[in-house]
Each structure stands twice: as C-alpha cells, then as structure tokens.
Design a protein around this nucleic acid. Structure first.
Lengths: 217, 217, 217, 217
DNA sequence: GATGAATGAGTGTTCATTCAT
DNA sequence: TATGAATGAACACTCATTCAT
C-alpha cells in the first residue's frame, strides 16, 4: 500500500523532516494529555515551537497531524520489530524473544501507542485503511514467527489458531499500554512479559495434543 | 463505589428515568455513527425526541450524556454476566461457558461496546474512575470464575496469572468488537469463541506442569 | 424560476422575516461602505443588532447574506415597477412615465443598487442565475412597454432594437447610481431623466423613417 | 492628473518594467478567473514566474497590483481610442466610426474590461480617483467627437445632452462586456454595434426638431 | 536582486449552554 | 415542565507581508 502523501508548501525536504519531527513530538504529548479533539492546532504549533502559520506550511488539515503521528508510530514499532525478527532463527526461543522484544517496545512507546490506539478512529475514511494496513503487516509478522517456530519444533496448529494467536500477541502488547491504569498496579513489565508468554506458550506447546478434546461451550 | 449523580432540574423521578432512556438510546445511535465529539447536543435532543432546552433539564453538560451512556452499557454487560455466573458451579465447563457467554454478549452489543470503548477516554477525570471501576468488577468476576474452576479441578495457578488471564478474557471479548474490521474477515463468532477458548484453556490445563521451565527471554 | 431557499435554524417565520430585515439593512450599509469581501460576518451581525451566533441562526454562509440582499433589492425594484406599469395604458406617454418612474426608483435605492451591482458577481454559481433572471424579467417589462407603445402609436421597430432599447433603459437607470461620482456633478435627477428620455424617444419616434439609411460603419 | 507612483525596492527601471509586465499579465489572467479578492499574492507571483519575495520587490501591497492592472488596461483602451480619433475629421461618419471602433476594442478587451469594471471598486481611496479620471478623459474624447460632428453637420444639442450621450456611448461599450451573459445570446457584435449606432444617431440627427415637444413626465 | 520560510492577525463558522416565555 | 432563540467563546484555517540568507 503506497504511502499517503501529506502536502507541504515548503520545498526543502530536510526542513520538512525536521519540522514534522517537532510537530509529531509536540502532538503526541498533547494528544496524550487531552486527546486529539480537545487539542487545538495552535497548541500543536506552540508545543512544536513555531507559529500557527508555520504549522500549516507543513500540513493541510488538523487531521494530517493525526495521520503523521499514527504513521510515524507504526513505522517505528514496525521497523524495530522487523529488525529484531531478521536476526532470529525461527524456533520456540525466537518466538518468545520476539514477543518479549515487542512488549518491551510497547512499554517504551507507551504514550505513543496509547494515543494512536485511542485516536486512530478519528482518521478520515481516506487515511484509516492505510494505518490499519500497517497493523495487519505487524500481525502478519507474528504469524510468520509462529509458523517458523512450529516448523522448527515440529508442532501443528490450525491456520485460524495461528492468526488468532498473532492477534492476541499484538493486542496484549497494546494492552500493556492502554490498560496501564490497572495493569501497572499489579505487574511490573517483567512479570507481565513472563506471564503472558507463559500463557501463550502453554497454549502452543500443548495445543496439538488436546485439539478436539474441548468443546467450546 | 457509589454511583455518580447526574444533576437534573426536574423533580419527578419517573420522568427522569423515562427521558434519560430516550436520551441514551438516541445518543448511542449517534455516537455509533459519528462518535461523541462529532455529535452535537442538538442532535442528541432531536434523536431523543425533545428539544435542546428539555435535554438540559436532565443533564448539566454534554459529558453527562456520555457518562450516562457508558454507565448504562457497562451495567447491561455486567448484569447479564453476573446472572449467567450466578447459575454456574465453578468447574472448567463453567469457565468455558462463561467465556462463551461473555463473547456472545459482546457480539450482540458490539456497537455499544465500541462506542464506550472509543469514547470513554473523553470522560472527565471525575467520571472516568467510576466507569473504570466497573471494568475492574467485571475482570474480578472472571478472576473468581477462574479461581473456582481451579479449586474444582484441583489445578494451581499463580495469583498474577489468574489476574492476567482474566484481563485477557475481558480484552479478547472487546477485541471481537473493536477489531471487527479484520477479525470478521477471518472468523465467524463460533470460530472465534472456540479458538480463543482453545488457546486459553490449554494454557490453563497444562499450565501447572511447565511453570518454571520456560525462561521469558 | 423558483426562489432559492436560504436555510434558517429558527422556525418562527415571523421572526425570520424580522431578523432578515435587520440583517439586510445592516449588510447593505456595510457593503456600500466597504464592499462584500471586506465586510466581516461579525460586522454584519453587529450592524443588524445581534450576535454572530444569532446571525448564523438565520443563514448558513456569508454568501447567503449577499444573496438575500440582492434578492430583496431586485424584488423591491421589480415590484414597484410592476405596480407602476399595471396602472398605465401602453402609449408613448406611458413609456416615458415608466422610464421616469424607474429612474426615480433607482435614485431612491441608489445605495442598494450600487451594492448589488458591484457585488452580485461574488454570488456562487448556484445563486447567480437566479438573480440574473430577475434582471431579465425587468428588461422584459421594458420590452413590453415599448411594444405596447409602438402598437398604440403605430410605430415599428425591429425586435432586436426593442431588446436593445430595453437594455439601454435598464442600464441607464443603474448608471445613475453606479456612475453618480460623475453624473451628479453635472446633472440633477430631473435633468438626467429629461435628457435620457429625450435621447431615447427621439430614437424611437424618428426611428422608422431612417431605418436603412445609416450604415453602421 | 499625475501618475500615481508605485514604489519598488529595485532600482533598475528596465527590470521594473519587465517584471511588472509579467506581473500584470499574470494578474489579469487570474483576476479574470477568480476576481481580485479570491486571488492570492502567491498565485500572482507564481503566474508571473517569480517568487513571492520578488513580487514584493516591485510593489508594496496587493492593491498595488490591482492599480497597476487597472492603469494598464485604461491606458491601452485610451491610447487606441486616441489614435483612432486623431485620424478622423469630425463629421457624422467619424462619430459612427469612432463608436464602432470603440465597441470593437471593448469586444477585444472584454476580459480585461470586465476585470477592471468589477474590481476597480477595491482600489483605495487613494488610487481610485486616478483611475476614474481616466474614464473621464475617455468620456471627454467622445464629447469632443460629438461636438465636432455637430459643428460639421450644422446640428445643435444642449451641452448636457452631449455629455449624456458621451456617457451613454462609454457605458454601452462596457455593457457589451459586462452584460455579455445576456447580450451575446441575442446579438452578434455587428448587430450590437449597428443597433446602438442606430438608436444613438437617430437621437442625434432628429434631436433638434423635437426639442421642447416632449415633456419628460 | 532573488528566494521562500516564517509570521500572526484575521476570518467564517460551530456549538454547548442559558434563560425568558 | 418544555421550548427554542440567543449568545459568544472557541476553533480550523488563510494569506498578506517580512526578512534572513
């Protein structure tokens, strides 16, 4: 899916990059605090360190800021995850390490993820699919890791269960951020990671033996 | 936690109940369609079938409507879940059946849950804790079911894992609603329920044997 | 051509009429002074005697004000002219009296006509045709008066010349308003009327005898 | 009336001339399309082929551009008319030919005249008189032609009627442009010219005999 | 002389809330 | 109790103009 271009009146690409960095950083911090709708464009400009006029030299609409923020966050998460996965062979250890790594990234980027998570729905019909697609790509990465792992370990899982597990991993990572108000009371990051891996891996390692034994209601 | 009172100028409790019903019904339908921020108080009044002036006889601010809506939805989900759980003994079958029931409720109330899920963050610092507390109560219900189940089946799980599993169940229920844009492509409700139970129960039934064998990174 | 409706949020038709009267009066005075583009909606509201919020209860966009102004002015001119014409038999005296009456109306409504004349072009593609159509109707009135007059006086003029003469009358009436910066220096209204009728009627009364004698270049 | 100076930061007169040519050409084309107010200085600079910064080296304000445009157009019309008139003796034929020529010029420069016609009102109190004066000079030219004609043909007309007729000619020329939306439906240029001359000349040639016979109301 | 990034006052428009009837 | 007209603070966005490079 091709990148959605956000129009800038300014020509200097270097400058665009720099200003958008400022803008995104400021916006994330504001969105975190008061949400997208309650944040004004003037506040974004001010937080970014320039005037309202300058802000609009680098975007066309307020929604562009949101798109830029979401795009940036997904890219960062996606890239870091990709790098990590490229370094691993595809066994059980790799899967656990991938999950662990992903959860740690989500912890580091807690604020960003929370924002994206809560505000992405405010994107236009135009921009939303592009962002959602990035989610799918990340879920697909996990699917692949699971598949590799299963091949390496000689395990079997139905295709649907692989997808489901990948989704679960993905959402549990986000969950550490968006449910922090409760989770952080009971868990430190290490416990959370260990606990979730425990639950996930048990489902995986024992999964093939019990298939069919359990009716679902 | 005591119920947050929403001020009404009108005295007649019957009338208040009736008007708020109309209001909530209208609001949910509008929030579903365009979200809380994009919905105007005038639209809410119109959809509810009375004038903007009348609306403000039963609430103080627009946010009150959101609170009322969230409150109502949580109550409905919570009540249904409570009723179901009251009828069950606490064995493994009960747990599976509770999960299944909860997922079905979430499917039925998809729109409402999505609304609440996406808009709850717009609640004031005042109202939010009250709503979040309702979440905790529901999570606690699942914790209890899990504990009962373990007692009945003679299984053991660390307290933290019980909490984590309860959270996972709760979030996975919501996930069916808020990630429907992708999940509904790959799963029908039955498959989703069966799949999730599969993954969860495996983690549960086999959990005690592997504790400690797996390092988490 | 059916009247273009301008949306009002307010329901009371009486009130709409009243508020729009205030609005139009204020707007004309402002447009006269600084033109449509340099007049702000806030100024219009203030001049009309209510708040900016109230202004927007009776219109949807700034352009609506312009449309309302143009529409009103044309209606007034058109109605007055129609009434006058209805009272006359169609002879030469009637024509002269119609012209005279029209010029007097244009003098009285100088400000309004000047505004409409200079700002009508700012109307949207949507509203413009409706307003232009009113012009055509007025021109057509003059055509009819001329035709009646010719029938009564036993004169002949080519159809094109009738149209042209009607246009000339129409524009000369406006001209008294929009070129007042110069005309008022040299003419009082009476002189202007007498002079223009003189020139027009001479063309009319002698027209049939010289047709064909004069090549046009 | 002395030419209003438009300040330029640049010294080189040649360059000023050149840049302003580009500027005026671009501006006319834009004003035609969207009017003065809806055209931005950036667009003017771009259309002229240089940067916004450069634009402001040759003018002080946006209104200067409008003044330059109006000035240029009037000069062109005025010069062409002057040249034509210089070549003629002052008889009836000359008058008809002058009118015809003027109408043709107005047809050729339709767009320019329309622009000037509709936008001149946006000129500052400072610049407007200068432009209006050019109109007067052109009207005066027509007055002179009429006077010459009357002397040559042995006719008489009151001074006021001469002025009026000159104004009529002037406005009817513009009218071909600013009322083209209707006139072009019913007339080709030749018909329009022939018709107007017909009506005008009749008033002229027969005028002296009927003076006094017609009361003007 | 030329450039174009930066500025911020100003604009049209919206909408939650009030209050006289 | 119900109504809906009135209000004005607040918002997204524009654009003429400046000035450092």
């Amino acid at each position: 899916m091709k990148k959605r271009e956000v129009h800038a009146s300014v020509k200097d690409e270097r400058l665009i990059e720099k200003r958008r960095d400022q803008m995104i950083k400021g916006a994330v911090s504001l969105f975190k605090e008061k949400g997208f709708h309650r944040t004004t464009t003037r506040e974004i400009a001010k937080e970014a360190g320039f005037s309202i006029g300058t802000l609009y030299e680098y975007i066309r609409t307020k929604e562009d800021v949101l798109y830029l923020v979401c795009d940036r966050i997904y890219d960062q998460v996606g890239e870091r995850l990709q790098q990590e996965l490229d370094m691993k062979r595809g066994n059980l250890e790799s899967l656990k390490s991938a999950i662990s790594y992903y959860f740690r990234v989500m912890d580091e980027m807690q604020d960003e993820v929370l924002v994206m998570y809560q505000e992405a729905k405010s994107l236009s019909k135009d921009a939303l699919p592009y962002v959602l697609n990035k989610e799918l790509e990340m879920v697909a990465m996990f699917e692949q890791v699971i598949r590799n792992c299963m091949a390496a370990e000689g395990m079997k899982l139905k295709e649907q269960e692989i997808q489901l597990m990948a989704h679960n991993i993905f959402v549990q990572g986000q969950m550490w951020g968006f449910r922090r108000w409760v989770l952080h009371k009971h868990f430190c990051l290490e416990d959370y990671i260990a606990g979730q891996i425990e639950l996930l891996i048990n489902g995986l390692t024992k999964g093939e033996h019990v298939n069919g034994n359990l009716s679902s209601n």
